[in-house]
Design a protein around this nucleic acid. Structure first.
Lengths: 78, 78
DNA sequence: CACCACCGATGACTATAGTCGGTCGAAGCT
DNA sequence: AGCTTCGACCGACTATAGTCATCGGTGGTG
């Protein structure tokens, strides 16, 4: 389980929990529609500021978001 | 207070606490010597995997690292 | 059927992350 | 006076983040 994959899983989880489409989330984050899709499919690695942008819109603390990524990685390590 | 600046502050704090030079940290992370300096001077934004690489070497959970960034940002907001 | 919202995917592009090799100055030590 | 370690800084490079326009597929609904 790589980091990008874990990020994509957590991103999709928070996005769908909010009921946002990829396009709506992208608009709210000032990001491109296709880029959100790329992130969820683990074909891009976000930068620090992009993580903060997305977390703000999804109303989750970045540290909590990252914490979930760590959990997924560790739980897949064995 | 921008995100990159807060990241630089936290990075330098953890690095010096470990007693590492920029160059030694870079070697241990498989990153470039000058790049660590750029991060500390807030002239670069790390990607997600770079954050995880650095945190592993500094023996800190990424979520804890990010949490400190959030604290610095919020405390400088007013 | 047609239309719609949503998403996957692609190619080409611009902006920036990250590398490499080097110079420089400050501080410490002999 | 040298020598060394550290970090700031530079110019030029390669790799990748992030944008944009577009096409296609799927599932729902009138």
């Amino acid at each position: 389980m790589e980091i990008a994959k874990a990020f994509g899983i957590v991103l999709k989880k928070y996005r769908t929990n909010k009921g946002f489409s990829q396009e709506k989330l992208a608009l709210m984050c000032n990001l491109d529609r296709t880029y959100i899709g790329l992130l969820e499919r683990a074909q891009r690695q976000p930068s620090l500021t992009t993580i903060f942008k997305i977390c703000k819109v999804l109303e989750v603390r970045p540290s909590e978001f990252i914490n979930e990524i760590e959990n997924i990685i560790h739980q897949h390590k064995k």
